[in-house]
Structure formats: structure tokens, C-alpha cells
């Protein structure tokens, strides 16, 4: 140890060392988590990339070969893949619109603290804890003729109920209904939590300025919710295909492939046709599209991550 000299001028290396010392005692507590995550996610991700460049197929007697980008080239001519992209978009964005609208309204109801609606706070959250697979079963039951009774009750008010699960368009709608049921609570919680952080003097000021209730929502609440809404949208798009179990039990991607999302197609390709190489290229292409869509907004949304706390 040498005697340090007079106050050093700003020295980057010294500062890094200082911070390093501050973190020194704690880094080893972080290490297991980082190793775990790298080994369990980054490594498989790279492995998937590798697989996607091979012809690996457990249904073929020929061993896997390196085929470069051939799988990716094939995707362009794969009508089923193109259709799955479209269906993914429908099953992500259609429920999302309703989740946002209903989630906002529900948050508004809770935020207004209307008397007699305490029970709503308790029950609105129920779907969040539902295993997605049971969510799918639940709606399959409801949409199954006789078993679910929906069409019976529609009949009572003079509507002839559609074939919920066996008509291609209706099947998309049925799955969307289940998705709205299942993930609106998430949106509600996000909006409601954000609303509770809004300073109340903003509302009071707007009242003194003569704003009506509707104007207050329009000019105070909604603009303040923009950032939250962006976060919600990013999360819901990224995790939109977590409805896999719902599709699995409700329609198995049918009828006639009309509800087959890209991850479902990758599942079929990889685990039923056992074409693992091709399935890898499907899911990675899908991931790349998601990232391309979300990258700009993700930066914006996540810039504060880690700053708090």
C-alpha cells in the first residue's frame, strides 16, 4: 500500500476502481443468478440458432446436415407459415384492443371508488391466477354446444348462436374472448396502479379550471397514462402468444389451421412432425419480427428500468 498523493484530478480509472470496490463484496452473490440465466437461456438461444441451420429431423432416417439458410429460404414459400404470421397478428392485436379498452374502464371504475363496488377489486383479478390451460378448458366448455349453454341463452333473446369453435372466423373470436377474459386484469392492474400515483392536485386544478368529468379524463388521466399504456402494449405483444395452451385445448390450431399461430406452427413442426431444424427457423424468425417491431419502443419503455429502488 502506497501513500496516496494529493487529491487526484478526476481520474476515470480510479473511479471505476472505486465503484468496483463498492460492488466487490456483493458480486459473488449475483454470480449464481447470472450463470444460471446465461446457461439456461442464452446458451439454448444460440443452440436454437445453430439448429435452425441444420436439417435435423427425428422423423427422417438421414442424419442432420448443415444446410445454411435453406430453412429460412423455405419459410418464404411456406403458405402455412405466412398464414400463421397473420393469425398471430390477429390473435395478439384483436384481444389487445379490447384488453386496453376494458382494462382502462375497469381501472377507472376502481379509481373512482364508487360505493358498493368493493367486491370488484377482489374478483376482477381471478383470471390472473388461472392456469392458462384451465382458462382454455373453461371457454371450451362454454362454447361447446349444450355443455356451455351460451347458444341456449342467446336463443332465448332471439339470436341464433354461431358455431363458436368450428367456424374459422368464429374460432378466432372465441379464442380472443378467452384472451380478453384472461389478460384484461393485468392491464387493469397496470393502469390502476399508475392512476394512484397521479397527484391529486392535478385533478383539483383542472376542476378549478372548470373541466367537466369527461374533460378531466380526456385531458388529464389519458395523457398521464400514455407511458403506462406503452409498457402494457409492449408486454402484451411480447407475451401475446402465451395463449398457446388456450389454443391447444380449444381448437388445436383448427379448424383448418385457422387459429394456428406461429408458435403453434413451430410446436407442430418441431414436436409432431419432429422437424426440429425447420421449427427452430420458424420460431427464431418470429422472435426476430417481434423484436424488430418492439425494439424502438422497448428502449423508450425500459429506460427507467433499474433506476428505481
Amino acid at each position: 500500500m502506497t501513500d496516496a498523493t494529493a487529491a487526484a484530478p478526476l481520474d476515470r480509472a480510479l473511479l471505476r476502481r472505486t465503484r468496483g470496490r463498492q460492488n466487490r463484496g456483493y458480486r459473488r452473490f449475483l454470480l449464481p443468478a447470472i450463470v444460471t440465466i446465461v446457461v439456461l437461456t442464452i446458451v439454448p438461444l444460440i443452440f436454437t440458432l445453430g439448429l435452425s441451420l441444420t436439417s435435423l429431423s427425428y422423423s427422417s432416417i438421414r442424419g442432420p446436415r448443415f444446410i445454411g439458410l435453406e430453412n429460412y429460404a423455405d419459410l418464404f414459400g411456406d403458405a402455412r407459415f405466412i398464414a400463421s404470421l397473420w393469425q398471430s397478428a390477429v390473435l395478439i392485436f384483436v384481444p389487445l384492443i379490447f384488453q386496453l379498452v376494458f382494462g382502462f374502464m375497469l381501472a377507472l371504475v376502481m379509481n373512482e371508488r364508487l360505493p358498493g363496488l368493493g367486491w370488484l377489486r377482489v374478483i376482477f383479478i381471478i383470471p390472473m391466477f388461472f392456469p392458462p390451460i384451465v382458462m382454455g378448458l373453461l371457454w371450451k366448455v362454454l362454447f361447446t354446444p349444450q355443455l356451455g349453454g351460451i347458444n341456449h341463452y342467446l336463443g332465448l333473446i332471439g339470436i341464433s348462436g354461431p358455431a363458436w369453435l368450428s367456424d374459422p372466423t368464429m374460432a378466432l373470436i372465441s379464442i380472443s374472448v378467452a384472451a380478453v377474459w384472461g389478460w384484461t386484469p393485468f392491464v387493469t392492474i397496470m393502469f390502476y396502479t399508475a392512476m394512484q400515483t397521479f397527484p391529486s392536485d392535478l385533478y383539483e386544478a383542472s376542476r378549478i379550471d372548470g373541466a367537466t368529468w369527461v374533460q378531466r379524463i380526456r385531458f388529464v388521466t389519458l395523457p398521464l397514462l400514455r407511458q403506462t399504456a406503452l409498457v402494457v402494449i409492449v408486454f402484451r405483444i411480447m407475451e401475446g402468444l402465451a395463449i398457446f395452451p388456450i389454443i391447444y385445448v380449444m381448437t388445436s390450431g383448427g379448424p383448418a389451421g385457422s387459429t394456428e399461430t406461429t408458435n403453434y406452427y413451430a410446436y407442430i413442426t418441431g414436436f409432431e412432425f419432429l422437424k426440429v431444424g425447420y421449427a427452430s427457423s420458424i420460431i427464431l424468425t418470429f422472435l426476430a419480427i417481434l423484436v424488430a417491431i418492439l425494439a424502438p419502443s422497448t428502449r423508450l419503455v425500459l429506460k427507467n428500468v433499474g433506476e428505481r429502488g
Binding site: D3, A4, T5, L14, Q22
Partner: peptide, 11 residues
């Protein structure tokens, strides 16, 4: 003096 803050110069 307590050792809670790193000394960046002097002794």
C-alpha cells in the same frame, strides 16, 4: 473515517 466511503485521495 468509518470506512463506509472509499477514500479517493490522501491518507
Amino acid at each position: 473515517i468509518a470506512g463506509l466511503e472509499e477514500i479517493t485521495g490522501g491518507t
